[in-house]
Design a binder for these strands. Structure first.
Length: 598
RNA sequence: GGUCACGUAGCUCAGUUGGAUAGAGCAACGGCCUUCUAAGCCGUCGGUCGCAGGUUCGAAUCCUGCCGUGAUCACCA
């Protein structure tokens, strides 16, 4: 809001002083650096040529103009081409007073007329438990959805479960052969883990068989195709596609086990979906779309009967859409789900949170949809994120170096417990309260650790070091919030009443540190808007950290409750309360809970 | 080989979309608990922003070319 006043006034100044048209949105305003006097800085270098004067002189002239026209402006100074402007204390007090009275500071009201944003994330396979890679996906998707909502969009969270295909059949076959009718509850195992083990077992047995075949003289490729287990699995897939009753029944039973396990993991992670799509329900629609595209002459058929899209005019290759045997591929299914999603929600935007190894896939998806005349192709955005790497290298399931999602969360909980207990902070907590706290801290550490990194970058996850509580971490921010809450309740005990600031408040001065915090608080709504635009919770996370760091310095330096000057004391209590509010809102957008005490 | 990302302190990461003397944390070292929670604060040490050109008042940021890392280029999903 202050920005806007300033940019408008600068544009007016350029017109009045130099008769030059400058667009308001081109006026560069930034927060004044700590080393200099001032609150906001206007960059006047660009006007040097237009006005044919030295930057310094222009700065002086515009500064004088602003001081004259805007009552909020108290003073200004010019350094090189930077015009630093200070605002009156009254302005800052009014800002703080208003912010304190605003419900949900920073969140925008929902704009009903906008079409919803559909965001897909998670997208698990039903033959494997969730791992660290999924965690980054889930947290990113969830947080982006929250941020979009806070910026005023209606959001639909959607999951696409890959519940069919050869890998599922492998798992079913393995259970049939070696499972002896045992169930997860009998085995006392989480459903997804239970089923995942059979997939692993299949791969193991199949590998042995392939090795055997190779000894008998088959080539590796041939051996892979000729293995009896694979043949059986393919047979099962065919039976599944034909709707064979026994196969379908087994399939449903085993998938139900998996979903029960997934639900637990999602719940602990704190995420949910508005709608879950299953590939088994959407792949046929994809085929229809392709068939229709063929009839309309947009796609073409090769001699073997396979159907393709020619993308050469886009500088790409040809893309297979339906195999010669009539079965569908990954792309076919995604065409179907996109269409279905569009029909379901008529969204303004379709977001896909999917790893960057699929960048090419989504380029192609957009192009093919466009070719097929789907206008919504332009509304598809791929939120691409980088891999999570481990100190020893990539995660590889074959080498047993995957980090299981449930195990990791449990570890985080245990670490939180260990560290908290050593510090002796929970003496007054009941058993349940303590457990709840460990969970909030453990999850906070994990979520913040993942989300603070720019999504598009690959990131390193060191299991030993990830559970940190100092520095740029979730627990550090949680702790700061707990202290603010403690300060607030102490103030109430001493008889100070909220709201701390009344209209009559008159202050002589505030410290530079307090001013710095005010400036940051003021930026919060803009930070939400920006994070929503770039789909990056990382910006938000780093903003909160910076705020907390500055707040901590201020907190340590100025013993609030000992303050003699009541005006000052109330101001500081108000500032603390506001900081707490912003931390709470910001962390909520990252999916992180903040305890009131810890 | 083609395409696309990424490369910032010993390590993990920021850098508000081209602005001021490039910032944090971890690690190392030195201070600060009779005060609202020391999971904290203050300070010291640490940089040729991969390299070389270019664009301009001004480049970690934009352009070009190299070097390095990763992903992808499947009738896998």
């Amino acid at each position: 809001m202050l920005n806007k006043i300033l940019t408008g006034a600068v544009a007016a100044a350029m017109k009045d002083l130099y008769d030059q048209e400058v667009l308001e949105e081109n006026v560069q305003v930034q927060r004044t650096r700590k080393e200099f006097d001032g609150d906001l800085t206007v960059v006047v270098f660009p006007y040097s040529k237009m006005a044919r004067k030295a930057p310094r002189q222009i700065g002086e002239e515009i500064g004088a103009y602003l001081k004259d026209k805007l009552e909020e402006v108290e003073d200004f100074n010019v350094i090189k081409g930077f015009l630093n402007i200070s605002f009156r204390l009254a302005y800052w007090l009014e800002f703080l007073r208003q912010a304190l009275n605003t419900k949900d500071y920073g969140r925008q009201a929902k704009k009903d007329k906008d079409a919803p944003v559909v965001i897909e994330f998670s997208s698990p396979n039903t033959n494997k438990p969730l791992h660290l890679g999924h965690i980054r996906n889930n947290l990113l998707g969830w947080s982006v959805a929250e941020i979009l909502e806070a910026s005023g969009r209606e959001v639909k969270r959607v999951n696409l479960v890959n519940d069919r295909g050869i890998h599922i059949c492998k798992t079913m076959l393995a259970w049939q052969k070696w499972g002896n009718g045992i169930t997860p509850s009998k085995a006392e195992k989480k459903g997804d883990k239970f089923v995942g083990d059979y997939y692993v077992q299949f791969e193991k047995q199949n590998k042995l068989e392939v090795k055997q075949k190779m000894l008998e003289g088959y080539s590796e490729e041939e051996a892979g195709r000729q293995s009896d287990l694979m043949k059986e699995a393919r047979g099962m897939l065919k039976k599944w596609e034909l709707g064979d009753e026994d196969t379908r029944e087994l399939w449903e039973k085993m998938n139900a086990w998996v979903y029960k396990g997934f639900d637990k993991t999602y719940k602990r992670m704190g995420i949910r979906f508005d709608k879950i799509y299953f590939e088994s329900e959407t792949y046929l629609l994809g085929k229809e779309i392709v068939t229709q595209g063929l009839q309309e002459g947009i796609l073409f058929k090769k001699d073997d009967g396979s159907i393709w899209a020619d993308l050469s005019d886009e500088g790409l290759d040809e893309k297979l859409l339906i195999r010669a045997d009539g079965t569908s591929v990954y792309m076919t299914q995604d065409l179907g789900t996109a269409q279905l999603r569009y029909d379901n929600f008529k969204p303004g935007k379709l977001l896909y949170v999917v790893g960057n190894e699929q960048n090419y896939h989504f380029d192609v998806l957009k192009i093919v949809l466009k070719k097929l005349g789907k206008a919504y192709a332009d509304d598809i955005f791929h939120i691409s994120y980088g891999m999570v790497e481990l100190p020893h290298g990539k995660m590889k399931s074959r080498e047993g170096t995957v980090v299981d999602a449930d195990d990791l969360m449990e570890e985080m909980h245990a670490s939180a417990k260990a560290i908290t207990s050593v510090l002796g902070k929970i003496d007054e907590f009941s058993q349940e309260e303590a457990e709840e706290l460990f969970e909030k801290i453990g999850m906070g550490a994990l979520k913040y650790f993942i989300l603070k990194v720019d999504p598009k970058k690959n990131m390193l996850f060191n299991p030993d070091e990830s559970i940190q509580f100092d520095g740029n971490t979730g627990p550090f921010i949680q702790y700061a919030h707990a202290r603010i809450q403690s300060l607030q309740s102490k103030a109430l005990e001493k008889g100070y009443k909220k709201p701390y600031l009344t209209k009559k408040s008159v202050l002589q001065d505030i410290l530079p540190r307090e001013r710095q915090i005010l400036k940051q608080l003021q930026e919060f709504p803009e930070i939400i808007r920006q994070s929503a635009e770039t789909y990056s919770p990382a910006q938000l996370a780093n903003y909160i950290y910076e705020l907390v760091k500055d707040y901590n310095g201020f907190y340590q330096d100025t013993p609030v409750l000992k303050e003699e000057d009541e005006q000052k004391l109330l101001f500081r209590l108000g500032l603390s309360e506001m900081t707490g509010k912003v931390i709470r809102t910001g962390m909520a957008l990252l999916g992180i809970e903040v305890p009131d005490r810890m």
